[in-house]
Each structure stands twice: as structure tokens, then as C-alpha cells.
Design a binder for these strands. Structure first.
Lengths: 187, 187
DNA sequence: TAAATAACCAACAAAATGTATTTTATTTGC
DNA sequence: GCAAATAAAATACATTTTGTTGGTTATTTA
């Protein structure tokens, strides 16, 4: 893999930063490419050298967040279908979100972007649903595994969103303990 | 309340229809006001007489959907904090969604719009959360009522989304029976 | 049927996008 | 370090889209 030119990395970073800054202020819809360039202090033609439009930039930004998280996950991986494993996974996710709180706040407060929810679902389905397939309690429940996963993930994500957007409502430890109680033992 | 001019009602309706049609085809981001007018067969100046921008139109559209649903709900209302009541509420919601499937498919497939999720949450919080406040089982669980509501609502919505967007995966009766099993008795 | 008013039409200014070309500055690999 | 490569800046421009206005036509209301 060849080394990427420093200038490219740099413009990418400042474009991400600029977009995040602007999303904190206003709805994605209302952000113009020229706004982004103004904040990022780059020429507009440079923007077009990197991305087709602002949507393209947003996708790249979310993709990067996803990779960052997946890497953190890899470092902590261990195999099990127990609830203990499941809760540990959630702990890592919550920790990651907390560390990057300002970023996630920007993205979510602005429009609860569907793309972002897709990202979480994607991660979750890859790392959780697959394991549940081997869980006998779940197989015997007569409800499709996929359906069970979607149900509990929906709940988890919805609580997570609430926690991120309402900073001081409860701590991450509290969030985790609530989830522990709400998620059934058999998962 | 004075009667609204027929022409106003008409333009509103064709604007809603046009937006829904376009959202079926492409992302909201990419839709231009001139596109909407072209499909709706109205002059662009007429659009501006009604709405500030396309976002404004979307908000009005969702607001109308919400009112439609709330009216249907009113007709079926009865008071109780039992799970039976809760399931009946869900049944009405699912029925409503099924009747207006093409509309909801348009809105959701295009970008899982945050505004729309807000609408469901709004409805739910008004009609469900308030009742849960009187439920002793929940009060004794040591988890904030708000948190419990958010958790189960998240699950319900997430399954609902899946059901709407994957038309033939399962019937509404199946959806309802799955939910019945997944939602605990104490709610 | 007359008065009110919504929608149409046409024209235009301003904003924003998207592209192409040349010049300047930085990075890379030797 | 230095030369070659290349990214970013600067500039200019055509095009698209937006947003507004004033006059005309058609529909609705009462």
C-alpha cells in the first residue's frame, strides 16, 4: 500500500472537522459547500477534487467513524454467546461513543441521520446477530432470530441516542446498568 | 373557523403527492424545488406562496400524517394501563401504517428521516408514557420510567421499520404476535 | 354574478454549483 | 538537499437553482 500524500490527509481532516462544526450549528440540509470550504479554509475547487458533493463527504466521514470503532472492537474481542459477552460489547460501544462524544453529538443532534443508524445496525448485525444464531434459548423462542435482534437493538440504540443527546441526564455506568436489567438473561 | 379555499387544499395535496413520488425515486437531498413543481404541475411561484423551501413542505407533510393517525387513535380510545391496552394501541398503529403503506415506504426508504422518527416518538410519549407512570410494576423496577419507555419503543419502532420496508417478510399479524411475545407482561 | 383571491406567467437578480486552466507551494523519493 | 511529481490556490466562467416581483387569468366564494 503506497503512502498517501500528507496534503490529502490534511485536507480530508479539515473537511471532516469543518462539516462537524457546521452540523453543530445547523441542519445538514442548510449547509452549503461554500460554507464548508470557508470554515475549512480551503479553496472550493479543492473540495471538488476530493468529493462530488457534501453528501459524499458525509458518507466518508461516517465510514471513517465506523472503521475507528471496528478497530477498537477488534482489540477487545473474545468469543462467547453469553450475556456477559453481549454486555461487554455494549460497554466498549458506550466507551467509544463517550470518547468521541462531540462528534456523535454533532451528527445526531442535527438530524438523527439515517446513515448513522445504518452504521450502528451494520456493526451490530455483524458482531451480535451472528452469535445469537447459536443460542438455544433464542432458537426455541419461535421468533425469527433476526426479529429478536432487531427488537433489542432498537431499544439499545434508542436509549443510546437519548444518552448521547442529553449529556447530563445519566452517566455511562447508569446507562449500562439499565441496559443490563432490560436485556433478558437469555441473550 | 372559516372555510379554506378549494384551490389551496388542492395545491397542498398535489405538492404532498409530488414530494412522495419523488422521494420514492431519489434521496430528499437531491430533490429540487423545480422538480417538485414539475411533477405537481404547478408554477414555481405558487410553491413559494405556500412554503419557504422543500424542508418546510416535508415538515407539513409529516405533520399531516401525524394528525391523521392521532384522529384514528381518538376513535379507538379507551383507558387502561394494562398490556392489553398497550397491544391494542400497537394494533391500531400497525393497521394505520399498513393502510398508508406506500406513503410510509416513500418517506422511510429514502432516508429513514429523523423527522419521522420524532413523529412516532411524539405520539408514543403522549399516549403511552403517561399511562406507564401509574404502573406499579414499573415504578418498582428502579429504572426511570422514561428510560423503560424509550427502550421498548426503540425496539417496537425498529421492528416496525423492518416490517414496512420489507413488504413480504411477514404479515402484520405475525409482527403483532412477535411484539406480544417480546414485550413483557408488566407493561 | 360580482368581488376576492389563488394560480399562472414572464422576467430578473442573486446565489450556488460545477468545471477548466494556469500558477504556486508542498511533498516525495532518490 | 534537490528535482520531479502533484496537491492546493487562484481565477474565470457557464450553468443551474433559487427566491422575488408585478401584471394577467381563472376559479372560488358568498
Amino acid at each position: 500500500m503506497e503512502k498517501t500524500d500528507l496534503r490529502i490527509i490534511k485536507t480530508n481532516k479539515i473537511l471532516f472537522d469543518a462539516l462537524l462544526t457546521l452540523m453543530k450549528e445547523k441542519n445538514f440540509e442548510k449547509i452549503k459547500i461554500s460554507d464548508i470550504c470557508e470554515v475549512a479554509l480551503i479553496n472550493r475547487s479543492t473540495f471538488y477534487a476530493h468529493y462530488e458533493d457534501k453528501y459524499d463527504l458525509l458518507i466518508a466521514l461516517i465510514e471513517e467513524l465506523k472503521n475507528t470503532f471496528l478497530n477498537e472492537l477488534k482489540e477487545n474481542e473474545y468469543n462467547s454467546i453469553s450475556k456477559e459477552y453481549f454486555m461487554n460489547l455494549l460497554k466498549i460501544l458506550i466507551e467509544h461513543t463517550d470518547q468521541n462524544r462531540s462528534i456523535y453529538t454533532s451528527i445526531l443532534s442535527n438530524n438523527k441521520n439515517g446513515l448513522f443508524l445504518d452504521f450502528i445496525m451494520d456493526v451490530a448485525n455483524r458482531d451480535i446477530a451472528n452469535r445469537l444464531k447459536n443460542n438455544k434459548d433464542i432458537i426455541n423462542s419461535n421468533i425469527p432470530i433476526d426479529t429478536i435482534t432487531k427488537f433489542y437493538l432498537g431499544g439499545i440504540i434508542n436509549l443510546g441516542l437519548d444518552w448521547i443527546l442529553n449529556k447530563d441526564k445519566y452517566t455511562k455506568e447508569e446507562l449500562l446498568s439499565y441496559l443490563d436489567k432490560l436485556i433478558p438473561e437469555k441473550i
